[in-house]
Write a protein that binds this DNA or RNA. Structure first.
Lengths: 173, 173
DNA sequence: GACGATTATTTTAAGCTTAAAATAATTCAT
DNA sequence: ATGAATTATTTTAAGCTTAAAATAATCGTC
């Protein structure tokens, strides 16, 4: 028996943090908790309703937004996973007939990956349900709160990208 | 030929979303982007500076906050991973000598996992550096902004837990 | 106190993920 | 043009992760 239904008080990574801990750490752990909770719901929904995994869905979603297809490297960037990861993921989706690979004419190192008609159809069948799940998960927030959250996350994203490796040697204006 | 410089603008999952897309989806994807970026930094830092993986560090961190140790199930809840996952993670950390398992005297199904002195020492050696990484990543936000973000994420967390499976049959006040 | 239901954990099979090394094609400065 | 450096991708080995089934112990009830 699996016991993964989070009924009752959830005791996650961040709930146990004493309240005098560092603010940065608390925000990070709460952010991680939210991301994990949402991801778990979406993953379960995709499996139960569509028998597909989250990584495969994410890859299809990227291709759906790119009518001309994407290279392996572009997929790796957008999904924020290692390039070696994409190789296997693409292989599995090709063998399922949901995507197709074609060598790039100009650069023989590259290949371009596209949705097949079947892949497009499969993705379109999942989108409305997926969007409903997300809407439900955010139902407790007003549009103003979501906008505020979006803005703060944008600032955080810039902060992250401004720190770390190469922060000093940026050549951007 | 690629217009994407290695340092230049990052093209991740959410950057490509048209701005008329649903607000909920945009917040979710930006949240995911931030979580992925932070996780990647921490993962790389732990590997480079301490030769440890993120899951192992996370498990040690949970045990550090639990002087009396935790059961396998408690670890699974707190780290928000499957119970089967914990089995292997604990095995590896036991074989490294960083944690120890002891059968629960009252319930022979359970076992209690604790940090060993070596594990405590190893974790204490990593903590300050880890905290510095997090502080750096959040350096672009004021304390007020972090507090606001923390509050919005708390609201989101409640929203998530209030939706989904069993939302109607909650027995909590 | 026996028995069905519940709970804690492990096992299994498959898939995901990473970092590092390897392969192969392109670019660039001679 | 040649060769060094760069870029795109695959391979490899190890580890992580999940869902589902299996095992085993406890609990509740009669």
């Amino acid at each position: 028996m699996d016991q993964d239904a989070p009924i009752g008080p959830v005791t996650d990574r961040e709930s146990a943090l004493a309240r005098d801990d560092k603010l940065e750490l608390r925000v990070w752990l709460r952010l991680l908790t939210c991301a994990n909770l949402i991801e778990a719901r979406v993953r379960a929904g995709l499996r139960e309703d569509f028998s597909i995994t989250l990584p495969r869905f994410d890859l299809l979603a990227q291709l759906d937004r790119a009518p001309d297809g994407l290279t392996m490297g572009e997929l790796s960037d957008r999904l924020m996973v290692s390039n070696g990861n994409i190789t296997g993921l693409v292989e599995r989706l090709v063998s399922e007939g949901l995507i197709a690979r074609a060598p790039s004419p100009s650069d023989r190192r590259r290949s371009r990956v596209k949705l097949t008609p079947a892949g497009k159809r499969a993705f379109d069948a999942m989108t409305p349900t997926h969007e409903r799940w997300i809407d439900d998960l955010f139902a407790g927030l007003s549009r103003a709160e979501m906008a505020e959250l979006l803005a703060l996350l944008a600032k955080l994203k810039r902060s992250i990208q401004g720190s770390g490796p190469g922060a000093a040697l940026k050549d951007n204006p």
